[in-house]
Computed example of a mutant assay.
Amino acid sequence: MFSKHGHLNIDGYTYADWAGNITNGKSTSDYFTFVGSNLVTWRSTKQKVVALSSAEADFRGTTKGICKLIWLNRLLTELGYRPTSVMNLFCDNKVAIAIAQNLVQHDCTKHVEFEDQLADMLTKAISSKAFHNSLDQLDIGDIYAPT
């Protein structure tokens, strides 16, 4: 169910597991996007190349997330609903953020763990508590539950 929140803010969350595929060493990227606090797109996909670091894997995943945000912005604008604020993209790797801000830093990479990353549920096993917290954050509820 989509809810009216009085705004059309576009937000995205990205995550990538580094070398998650034990057969070929490729990483898996995933993202969620929200429009007006409503979940509208999500995807989990294997990256096409082998990333040499966790930062590179996250950077590639973040790039896919940015592409989706731009697409949503253009779609809404074309439909006559131009978003009123800047788009936000959240990722869980400080180095990937630094690379996005300064491409010269591509040689300085280190993986950083974050807890409660929303997109974790697409690429790794998480506890039932974390899973249900993620469902709450995604505003996914039981449509058959009494109101």
Rank of each mutant, 00 (worst) to 15 (best):
G80F: 05
F90C: 06
I97N: 02
N88W: 08
S85P: 07
D92M: 00
A98R: 12
L89E: 01
L79M: 06
I99A: 01
N88F: 09
L103E: 12
L79T: 03
T77E: 03
F90S: 11
L75Y: 03
I97D: 00
L76F: 11
N88V: 04
V104A: 14
N93C: 14
A100P: 05
Y81I: 00
G80M: 02
D92K: 03
P83C: 01
A100F: 06
A100S: 13
V86G: 04
L75I: 06
T84S: 15
L103D: 12
N102G: 08
I97L: 05
A98D: 15
P83F: 05
Q105S: 15
R82S: 05
V95F: 10
R74Y: 11
I97H: 07
G80H: 10
N102C: 13
Y81S: 07
F90Q: 02
V95K: 12
Q101V: 05
N93I: 06
N93Y: 09
N102F: 05
Q105M: 15
C91Q: 05
L89N: 08
R82F: 01
N102H: 12
F90P: 05
K94I: 04
N88Q: 12
E78Q: 10
R82K: 12
M87S: 13
T77F: 09
K94D: 11
Y81A: 09
Q105C: 14
D92V: 04
V86S: 08
R74T: 11
Q105F: 15
D92L: 03
V86L: 06
T84I: 11
L103F: 03
A100L: 00
E78G: 13
N93V: 09
L76M: 10
G80A: 03
L103T: 12
T84E: 15
L89Q: 03
Q105K: 15
L103P: 07
A96V: 14
T84D: 12
K94P: 04
F90A: 03
L75G: 01
I97M: 08
L79Q: 03
Q105Y: 14
F90T: 02
P83T: 03
L75V: 10
S85R: 10
M87E: 03
N93A: 08
K94V: 09
N93H: 08
T84W: 02
F90M: 00
V86P: 00
L76R: 04
V95D: 11
T77N: 01
Y81H: 08
L103I: 11
N73V: 00
D92I: 06
V86Q: 02
L76W: 06
N73R: 14
F90R: 07
V95E: 07
E78M: 00
L76Y: 08
C91E: 10
L103A: 10
I99L: 07
S85M: 10
N93F: 09
L76A: 04
F90E: 03
K94A: 13
N93R: 08
N93D: 15
Q105L: 15
V104H: 14
Q101S: 11
E78Y: 00
F90V: 03
V86M: 02
P83Q: 09
T77V: 00
Y81P: 01
I97F: 01
S85E: 14
F90H: 04
K94H: 04
L89S: 01
T77R: 02
F90N: 01
K94T: 15
S85A: 13
K94S: 14
L89I: 09
R74V: 07
I97C: 00
N88T: 11
L89V: 05
C91L: 04
E78H: 06
Q101A: 15
R74P: 01
